[in-house]
Design a binder for these strands. Structure first.
Length: 506
RNA sequence: CGGGACGUGGCUCAGUCUGGUAGAGCACAGCGUUCGGGACGCUGGGGUCGCAGGUUCAAAUCCUGCCGUCCCGACCA
C-alpha cells in the first residue's frame, strides 16, 4: 500500500462523479443492476434504508389522517385516456400488457398467445385507477375528505436509467386525496409538501428548497406542482418529492362527484403526492465521500457495528461474550422511538472488515478487544470523522452518550450539506455572468461546475426554454422562501418581481 | 431515439492492430505465520472471451447483425 492516503472508492468524486456514484452503490452493497434493462435489485443494505424511510414517512402520513390502501398494478388503457394532459405526459413511457398466455412456438421458445381485448398498462402512477375507485366511494360531502395512500411499485419506460435515480421500475408511495373545497385541497397539497420537507431534512439530513414548478415542469394534469429540491455534491439539483394540487381535472375525468351540504352536485378537488426510492440516490450523492456512503442515523439500516478483535483462541470466548452483552444492552436503548440497530461482525479477516463497514456508511464502528475489556471500555469510530479521530470511551459512558453521538452525526451531516448548498448558491443578475456560471471551463473534460442560481425570470415560457436549450439549465422551482423584489428577467430583461432557482438537474 | 466509448472468471483490466488450443492483480476456499490489522507465504477452485450468424484448416482477435452497460443530448421522480 502506498503511503499516500488511499480512498476506498475509485474514482473519487472529483475524478469522475457519475462513476463514483455507481461504485459507491456497489461497494456498499445497496443495490445492483438486474438482467432486465433499467431495473434494479435492491439488496438488504439498501432495502433497510427504504424500510426505515417508509416506516417513518408512513407514520407522518397517518398522523395527518391518511389511511393506506392498495390498487391494481394494471390499468385499462381507457382510464389513461380520460385526462388529456395526463395522456400527453405518460403515454410514451408506458409498459403495455397485450397478452395473457405463453405457448411453445418454434424451437420450443415461448411466445405470447391469447391477445387481450383491451390491453392493460402497467401503472406509471395511479391517479386514474384510484380516481375510478373514489368515484364509487364518494357520494356525499360527508365522505370527504378522502385521504388515501398506497405503497407500490410503478413502471416508467425511461430512455436513460441510473440506479436509484431513474429506473424503469421503482418503489414509491403515492398519496391521493379528495376534498370538498378548493382551499382544503390546496392546504393538503402544502401540508404534504411540508411532510416531505421534514422527512428530507430531519430523517435524511438533506436540506431542501420548497417551491412551485413552472408550467412546463409541472405534473401532467396538475394545476399546481410543488416540490422539494436538493443539491447534490456535483452541484446538480435533485427533485426529492412532489405534491400536486390537481384542481378538478381528475375529478372530472374520473367522475368524482359528491352532493354538497347545499344539496348541489359538485366535482371533488383532488391532490396527489409522492416520494420514491430515488431518495436513496439522493442520500448517496448528498452524504457520500471518497470512502463510500455515510448513512444518516435516523434512516441507517444499522447504527452500530461491533467488531470483536479475535487474536488468540483463548481470548475468543471472553471477547465474544463481552461483545454479545454489549449488543444486547445497546439494543435496549431506544433512538427516536425504535431500538438501536446493532450488527456484530466477527469475521476474522483483518482490516478489510473495517473498510467494508466504512464503505457501507454505518454511523458507528466499535472495536472490542482484550484491552477494552480490561479497562471496561470500547474503541469508537465515527463514520463522519477521520479514522484517526477514533477514541476509547468507557462502556458506561458509551451507553449514556450513544444516542447523543448519533444525533450529533445526524446534525453534522445536515449542516455540512447545507453549507455546501449555500456556498454553491449565487444571486446573479447579469446574463453573461449567468451563462459563464453554467459553462464548464474545460469543455473537453467533464467537470463539476455550476450550482444553484437565484435569478429573475419574467414568467415567460420562451425565456425558460431558451435557457434550457442554450445551457441545459432549468428552473427547478419558484421558491417559497423568496422575497418579492423588483428586477429584470435574466433572459429577456423584462420586469420581474421574483427570483427563481436555476440549476442543472437529474 | 441520436452522438461517443465499451462488453474477456465476482471486480479492475491485459491480450484484439499483425487469427494458432485463455492471462494478471484483487476477491474467493484450505493450511500456516502475522494482526487493535485494508498483512504475508504456499496451495486451490472458478471464464464455451455479451449473443447470433459469417469468413478460415483454425476466431477473444477479421466481417455483419443484435443485445447490454456507461457518458453526452432529447424525455422524466
Amino acid at each position: 500500500m502506498s503511503k499516500q492516503e488511499q480512498t476506498a472508492i475509485s474514482p473519487t468524486r472529483t475524478e469522475n462523479y457519475p462513476e463514483w456514484y455507481q461504485q459507491v452503490i456497489r461497494a456498499s452493497e445497496m443495490a445492483e443492476l438486474s438482467p432486465v434493462r433499467g431495473c434494479m435489485v435492491i439488496k438488504p443494505w439498501g432495502y433497510g434504508l427504504w424500510e426505515n424511510i417508509q416506516r417513518q414517512l408512513d407514520d407522518m402520513f397517518k398522523a395527518t389522517g391518511v389511511k393506506n390502501a392498495y390498487f391494481p398494478l394494471f390499468i385499462p388503457i381507457s382510464f389513461l385516456e380520460k385526462e388529456a394532459e395526463h395522456v400527453e405526459g405518460f403515454a410514451k413511457e408506458c409498459a403495455v400488457v397485450t397478452h395473457h398466455k405463453l405457448e411453445k412456438g418454434e424451437g420450443g421458445r415461448l411466445v405470447p398467445a391469447g391477445r387481450l381485448n383491451e390491453p392493460l398498462i402497467v401503472r406509471p402512477t395511479s391517479e386514474t385507477i384510484i380516481g375510478d375507485a373514489f368515484s364509487k366511494w364518494i357520494r356525499s360531502y360527508r365522505d370527504l375528505p378522502m385521504l388515501i395512500n398506497q405503497w407500490a411499485n410503478v413502471v416508467r419506460w425511461e430512455m436513460r436509467t441510473r440506479i436509484f435515480l431513474r429506473t424503469s421500475e421503482f418503489l414509491w408511495q403515492e398519496g391521493h386525496t379528495v376534498h370538498a373545497t378548493k382551499q382544503e385541497a390546496i392546504d393538503r397539497t402544502f401540508m404534504m409538501l411540508e411532510v416531505y420537507r421534514k422527512m428530507a431534512e430531519e430523517l435524511l439530513a438533506i436540506p431542501v428548497i420548497t417551491g412551485e414548478k413552472t408550467e412546463s415542469e409541472k405534473f401532467p394534469g396538475a394545476e399546481v406542482t410543488t416540490c422539494i429540491e436538493a443539491m447534490m455534491q456535483d452541484k446538480k439539483a435533485l427533485q426529492a418529492g412532489t405534491s400536486h394540487f390537481l384542481g378538478q381535472n381528475f375529478a372530472r375525468a374520473s367522475g368524482i362527484r359528491f352532493q354538497s351540504a347545499e344539496e348541489k352536485e359538485e366535482f371533488g378537488w383532488t391532490t396527489s403526492w409522492g416520494a420514491s426510492t430515488r431518495l436513496i440516490g439522493g442520500l448517496v450523492m448528498t452524504h457520500g465521500d471518497d470512502n463510500g456512503i455515510i448513512l444518516p442515523p435516523r434512516v441507517a439500516t444499522a447504527h452500530i457495528v461491533l467488531l470483536p478483535i479475535l487474536k488468540k483462541a483463548k481470548e475468543t470466548e471472553s471477547v465474544m461474550t463481552y461483545t454479545q452483552d454489549l449488543a444486547d444492552r445497546l439494543r435496549q436503548i431506544h433512538y427516536h422511538g425504535a431500538p438501536l440497530r446493532v450488527e456484530i461482525d466477527a469475521r476474522n479477516i483483518g482490516g478489510t472488515r473495517n473498510w467494508d463497514w466504512i464503505k457501507k456508511g454505518i454511523p458507528l464502528r466499535v472495536e472490542i478487544g482484550p484491552k477494552d475489556i480490561a479497562s471496561n471500555a470500547v474503541f469508537l469510530a465515527r463514520r463522519d470523522m477521520d479514522r484517526k479521530q477514533s477514541r476509547s470511551v468507557t462502556k458506561d459512558r458509551f451507553f449514556e452518550e450513544v444516542t447523543d453521538i448519533l444525533d450529533d452525526i445526524q446534525k453534522k451531516l445536515f449542516e455540512r450539506a447545507l453549507t455546501f448548498r449555500e456556498e454553491n448558491t449565487h444571486y446573479i443578475d447579469a446574463a453573461d455572468a449567468f451563462d459563464a456560471f453554467f459553462t464548464p471551463k474545460n469543455s473537453e473534460k467533464q467537470e463539476i461546475h455550476g450550482g444553484f442560481v437565484r435569478a429573475h425570470w419574467c414568467g415567460g415560457r420562451d425565456c425558460e426554454e431558451a435557457i434550457k436549450n442554450r445551457l441545459n439549465v432549468t428552473i427547478r422551482c419558484i421558491p417559497f422562501d423568496g422575497e418579492e423584489e423588483a428586477g429584470t428577467c435574466i433572459e429577456c430583461a423584462k420586469a420581474s418581481r421574483k427570483r427563481v432557482v436555476f440549476a442543472k438537474a437529474y
